[in-house]
Design a protein around this nucleic acid. Structure first.
Lengths: 176, 176
DNA sequence: ACCTTTATATAGAACGGTCATTATATTTAT
DNA sequence: ATAAATATAATGACCGTTCTATATAAAGGT
């Protein structure tokens, strides 16, 4: 992977997450990434192609983040350590909601079918990820619901308050 | 309130919710509402003014919807009837997430401070609404987390599955 | 009833700006 | 010398907003 391409993906992710996909122009992306506009088009077919690759990159990071937190579940239950990992993930980034859902919201299916399909698939992958950790389908859906809630609410309240209620809910809903 | 203004607000809400605020141009709004462009600017100062009035209108509808469901709590606990009302609200509209959060996400504070401030205030109002129903602050925050989660997850899964897990969570977390 | 006023809605063009994308031509590295 | 990155400008489309000029319709006074 070219360093320039890496820079582009990095700054594009940042800008799109902070301000939205339609609000950020490509000129702004290349300026922030210190790259010429033609270099962007050398690496990506179009803006929407860039967005798709940004999402794929972010998905990889997110899942490996969750996975690494499960390996060492210390004394906690798996659900709890997953919740704590999710809170840490929220803390890492600006609190602007779920980037995947935001992509789906900005690109309705008639505007860019591929992005919408990818986001749907991503969320289903998350639920399947829970199921592979031996949660049944209902529990996995419930976990997803709680995580989405925590991500969304962190846009408004400070993360500590959100974390407290997430942990509380997990402890009462998932006792091993 | 002029009928034309009403039409504009109605169709603007629809389009903005379906496709996003930056994705929808004013020409599209006036065409959908069967109104001349100048009529829009006769009733609203700017696009962002229109957006703000759309949000205020929607907030009124949402809160009166929640309130009306609490008056007749039948046998259910208040938390449960609120959850069911929220599910009904989700079913009423297309499932494209929370319009208020989406507004905040598309207008970062440096882009339009007023919209961001309004959305923050709206969510705090929701929590205060729960507190007035005698939930303590933690419980109110938890309710908000669950509702946000249900709204977000309904963008991907069908509402029945989401409703089942929301109800389950409420029943186990809020026994009277 | 008739005229005048006032407010509101209309269509359409124009403005300046930004957008994604493409073309051209030059420079920088390996 | 081959490939990658650069700077710059052009394209055509769309954006929010404003201007102009016309049409409609209700209201009030005579």
């Amino acid at each position: 992977m070219s360093k320039k391409k890496e820079d582009l993906l990095e700054h594009a992710e940042d800008l799109f997450y902070k301000h939205g996909f339609h609000s950020v122009g490509l000129k702004r992306v290349v300026k922030e990434a210190n790259v010429a506009l033609m270099t962007l088009y050398n690496h990506f077919d179009s803006k929407e192609d860039l967005i798709l690759e940004v999402l794929k990159r972010r998905e990889k990071k997110y899942f490996s983040y969750l996975e690494s937190s499960v390996i060492k579940p210390k004394n906690n239950s798996i659900a709890l350590s997953l919740a704590e990992a999710n809170i840490r993930w929220i803390r890492l980034h600006e609190t602007n909601g779920c980037m995947f859902l935001r992509a789906k919201e900005e690109f309705s299916s008639d505007s860019n079918q591929e992005i919408v399909r990818y986001v749907n698939e991503h969320k289903k992958s998350l639920i399947r990820f829970f199921e592979k950790l031996n949660f049944d389908h209902c529990e996995s859906t419930r976990l997803a619901l709680l995580f989405e809630g925590a991500t969304a609410l962190s846009e408004i309240l400070n993360v500590d308050d959100v974390a407290r209620e997430l942990i509380h809910s997990i402890e009462h809903l998932f006792e091993k």
